[in-house]
Design a protein around this nucleic acid. Structure first.
Lengths: 217, 217
DNA sequence: CACCAATTCGAACGCTCGTTCGAACTTTGA
DNA sequence: TCAAAGTTCGAACGAGCGTTCGAATTGGTG
């Protein structure tokens, strides 16, 4: 993964501190919302002075961008690394769902910010995050197309279906309690089965298979 | 429907102005977000003075509550009025989805606020909206249970499925363009079919039937 | 130790925020 | 027509906002 700040010489200390600040900021943004959280809130949470923060980014908006961009890159990177290992299209999709939910729950604050504060960004920052988002949706569309490839019957709109699946998954930030339910495998299987075979399907539920390996980061 | 302010004598002029202010405020909140929108923004949009607003509500938070509460009551009222007219459980669900999406798109600003600013409310206001939300989800769960009633095979978790369906529908506020796509019937049918029969279902798509009547308000 | 660069900090800037209040204006009904 | 009630308004309040800047402190290297 590319370093966040390419213009500044990479120092281990600097990188560690920046990552810590991003982590804490994500928590504050997730709790209070981007516009409602103040830089003073973040400084307090990060145990630094208000002005000390500005050594690591130029504006509050850039801070939000860094959090969003970093998280999006991570989840996409993880996805692309492993997706090619699955040949069965339905298994591919099942891994996609698992990867998404697993990342969502493991990086709860960052992903909540990503899902909820997307259009608190403007201009260049907004465009870059939107581009990442579009790429992610396109990847999902491709997997969906594979599922339907060899079918004679009329196909469903892959883009619309992808957006539905994304909504299903992302909406968890409004109801999921990361402290209670932690059975991410079951959640992923339920959603995959629901999406592929439907709530009122007459077929047996064929989706669940071996649990995925939980990767670090 | 109960009047919004029960302590104040109902006057036609007052009610009309209040509703206009709620409508305009919902637009401003939908565009800029609750915390990022200022009372001065709202005053400008409502063509009144800053202090003039406070004749109609006590605080900015109460304004958000009024918008949310009013919209939620409307959509639930519409739903309950008509849901009993359908006997087939799948048709019941199809109407539920249609009613939700139809209301969402017709009252775009209000519903976007409802979906996106739910936890900008706190205390009593938050509790009341959450109660309405829980009631709405319970209603959907009940419909889902009906769909599965006469089945021998293992049932799916109705609450989890309801939350998935809600996410699928509510997520449209992140991608739907109310100015472009207006074919709400197709959208409702696609989502109903996707939810009931699944993306990869081997069955024919049996959901679409007669389009619903579009009700005013 | 002495030096320079990397990092942190206190203090302050100009600005916008939500809310208040008494005066002024408008409508209503006798 | 006049007074009471309903509605709007200008001006101001204290507080908190994001950001800046030069000085102080810390860390690594000769």
């Amino acid at each position: 993964m590319a370093p966040i700040e390419t213009t500044r010489l990479a120092s281990q200390r600097y990188d560690a501190r920046l990552n810590e600040i991003l982590r804490v900021s994500a928590q504050v943004f997730a709790e209070k919302g981007f516009h409602n959280a103040s830089m003073r809130d973040i400084a307090r949470a990060a145990r630094t002075s208000l002005s000390g923060l500005y050594y690591y980014f130029r504006t509050k908006e850039e801070l939000l961008y860094l959090i969003s961009s970093y998280a999006f890159d991570r989840v996409t990177e993880l996805l692309e690394q492993q997706l090619s290992e699955y040949s069965d299209p339905r298994e591919k999709l099942r891994f996609f769902v698992f990867n998404h939910l697993h990342f969502f729950i493991r990086h709860w604050n960052e992903t909540k910010v990503l899902a909820h504060e997307a259009d608190s960004l403007r201009g260049k920052y907004f465009d870059e995050i939107m581009a990442k988002k579009r790429r992610y949706v396109a990847l999902m569309e491709q997997v969906l197309d594979d599922v339907q490839r060899a079918q004679q019957r009329r196909r469903k709109d892959a883009r619309l279906s992808a957006l539905c699946l994304l909504g299903m998954m992302n909406w968890i930030y409004t109801w999921y309690d990361p402290k209670k339910d932690t059975n991410i495998h079951r959640l992923a299987d339920v959603m995959t089965s629901l999406f592929l075979d439907g709530f009122d399907s007459r077929e047996a539920n064929t989706v669940p298979s071996a649990p995925f390996q939980e990767q670090r980061l």
